[in-house]
């Protein structure tokens, strides 16, 4: 039996050939080392993300999330739902909160779920049972236990912990401050690297979905996020969020043109740092999925 077992909500971006497929690869490697078993929710659907508000309204969005929760309760009873994507985690948890506050929303939702032979149980413990992977690592394992399997400390690397928005606000991780969360820095330290502890852009918004619709405004934000990492002499940025990862990595070349910069800053996931520190190969850590490759991290991964 695995050490820990969860009902897993991987989310759209983690699918094969999707924008965070490399995140998923590294999560699988990390979980193998930590002996975490992830039981995927059968036939899970999209959470609606934040941008779903405009056409999804309230009830349709909550119905989407309630369907996932109902499927999880039916097929993986008693297990916490764990999401690796910030939006999936937030969307699911937020729907639980809303449904528990409004009898009408809950009744409407149950009525709709019933047509599909489903029923959702929303009780006082449901919200706390919807968790982000980082929460699981910090709260169920703790820094000491995360440090134990480290085979290759990431010595000599300086890393800027970019927490972003939705893994941080409004729920937060481990009760940390919204304005100066420190868990990413602690994780960087535990993996043997040096955190950029005064990285002032750690909770700046990357623009989220507006990177697509308002690219100039979003790229102005991303410029600050990357530039500050350079100012702190960081070798790379680390993040827990698939949207942050993509936005901060892929637009650097366009930002270079607009602002006459020379950015080439790798942006990796916490799980990629952990997989490498735990002895995975670059491929097992999903490092071949980075558009801006992190040579220093790849070198550590490939060293015997």
């Amino acid at each position: 039996m695995a050490r820990k077992e969860y009902s897993f909500y991987p989310g759209c971006s983690s699918e094969r050939n999707a924008s965070a497929s490399n995140y998923m690869v590294s999560v699988q490697s990390m979980c193998k080392t930590l002996d975490i078993k992830l039981n995927e929710i059968p036939d899970w659907n999209c959470c609606g993300a934040s941008i779903g508000y405009a056409d999804g309204g309230e009830l349709p969005r909550h119905v989407m999330n309630a369907r996932n929760i109902a499927l999880s309760q039916k097929h993986n009873p008693g297990q916490d739902i764990v999401a690796t994507c910030a939006a999936c985690w937030l969307g699911t948890k937020e729907s639980v909160e809303r449904l528990s506050k409004s009898e009408q929303l809950l009744a409407d939702t149950q009525n709709i779920l019933a047509d599909a032979g489903l029923k959702v149980d929303i009780n006082k413990n449901t919200a706390s049972g919807v968790r982000h992977m980082v929460e699981v690592l910090i709260e169920d394992f703790g820094y000491d236990e995360l440090a134990a399997p480290v085979k290759k400390p990431l010595e000599g690397l300086k890393i800027a912990g970019y927490v972003g928005c939705q893994t941080n606000r409004p729920f937060g991780i481990d009760g940390e401050s919204f304005e100066n969360p420190k868990y990413l820095d602690k994780m960087v330290e535990v993996m043997g690297a040096e955190p950029a502890d005064k990285y002032e852009q750690k909770v700046t918004c990357c623009g989220g979905a507006l990177a697509f619709s308002e690219p100039e405004k979003s790229q102005a934000q991303i410029k600050e996020i990357v530039e500050s990492a350079y100012d702190h002499n960081a070798d790379m940025i680390v993040t827990p969020c698939p949207v942050c990862q993509m936005n901060v990595e892929v637009y650097q070349e366009q930002i270079n043109k607009t602002y006459n910069k020379n950015f080439n800053m790798p942006v990796v996931y916490y799980s990629q740092l952990m997989a490498v520190a735990y002895g995975s190969s670059a491929k097992e850590a999903g490092l071949d999925g980075q558009i801006i490759r992190s040579k220093k991290l790849e070198e550590i991964a490939e060293a015997k």
Partner: peptide, 22 residues
Amino acid sequence: NPTKRFAKLFWDNIAATGRVNE
């Protein structure tokens, strides 16, 4: 409004198949 238009593309996309087709 570009965000309004993108949001519609997004919602239609997920409502069609249940997941984002990027």
